[in-house]
Computed example of a mutant assay.
Amino acid sequence: MPSITCFLAVLLSASILLASGVVHADISPEQYRQPPALWPAMNHSNPSAKELAPLPGLPRVSWHTPRTERLGYQLFFDPRLSGSGQIACASCHDPDLGWADGRQVAIGHNRQAGIRNTMSILNSAYFKHLFWDGRAKGLIDQALDPISNPLEMNASLPEVLDRLNAIPGYQQAFAKAFNSERINADHLAMALAAFERSIVSRPNRLDRFINGNYQALTDQQIKGLHLFRTKAGCISCHSGALYSDGDFHHTGLSYYGRKYQDTGLEQVTGRAEDRGKFRTPSLRDLAYTGPWMHNGLFPSIRGILNMYNAGMIGNTRLPPGLPPLSVHIKPLHLSSAELDALEAFLSALNQQPYRRPLPKLPDYLSISSWK
Score class of each variant (00 low, 15 high):
179 N>C: 00
78 D>M: 09
365 L>Y: 07
170 Y>T: 08
298 F>S: 14
324 P>D: 06
99 W>I: 03
312 M>Q: 15
342 L>I: 03
169 G>H: 11
235 I>C: 07
103 R>E: 12
165 N>V: 06
265 L>D: 00
356 R>W: 12
110 N>Y: 09
290 G>A: 11
206 L>Q: 07
108 G>R: 10
67 R>V: 11
241 A>C: 13
109 H>R: 13
30 E>N: 15
59 P>E: 15
35 P>A: 13
329 I>R: 04
190 M>N: 13
315 N>I: 04
327 V>A: 10
92 C>M: 10
36 P>V: 02
352 Q>G: 00
25 A>C: 06
288 Y>W: 09
277 K>Y: 02
53 A>W: 02
68 T>D: 03
226 H>M: 06
224 G>H: 06
57 G>C: 00
73 Y>G: 01
134 G>K: 04
145 D>M: 10
221 Q>N: 06
321 G>T: 01
18 L>C: 10
98 G>Q: 07
233 G>H: 12
159 E>I: 03
152 E>K: 14
341 A>H: 04
266 E>L: 06
342 L>Y: 10
338 E>L: 03
120 S>G: 06
198 S>N: 11
213 N>I: 12
348 A>D: 07
253 L>Y: 04
141 D>K: 06
206 L>R: 01
272 A>K: 11
11 L>P: 01
262 D>L: 06
26 D>N: 08
253 L>V: 14
3 S>M: 00
32 Y>D: 01
341 A>Q: 05
39 W>A: 07
195 F>K: 08
18 L>W: 08
54 P>D: 03
332 L>D: 08
319 P>C: 03
269 T>K: 02
5 T>L: 13
138 G>Y: 10
10 V>G: 08
15 S>F: 05
196 E>R: 11
228 F>T: 05
50 K>E: 14
168 P>H: 08
89 C>T: 12
24 H>W: 12
210 I>P: 00
301 I>M: 15
186 D>R: 13
8 L>A: 14
201 S>V: 09
7 F>D: 12
74 Q>A: 13
151 L>S: 10
7 F>Y: 07
8 L>M: 11
269 T>E: 02
240 G>E: 06
250 H>L: 10
320 P>A: 13
175 A>L: 14
16 I>R: 04
107 I>A: 09
337 A>D: 08
272 A>R: 12
109 H>A: 15
89 C>M: 07
179 N>L: 14
328 H>F: 14
336 S>P: 03
193 A>N: 09
218 T>S: 15
59 P>H: 03
108 G>C: 08
73 Y>L: 06
347 S>H: 13
188 L>N: 07
74 Q>L: 10
103 R>D: 05
305 L>A: 15
210 I>G: 00
238 H>K: 06
88 A>T: 04
104 Q>S: 13
183 I>D: 02
57 G>I: 01
349 L>S: 06
200 V>N: 01
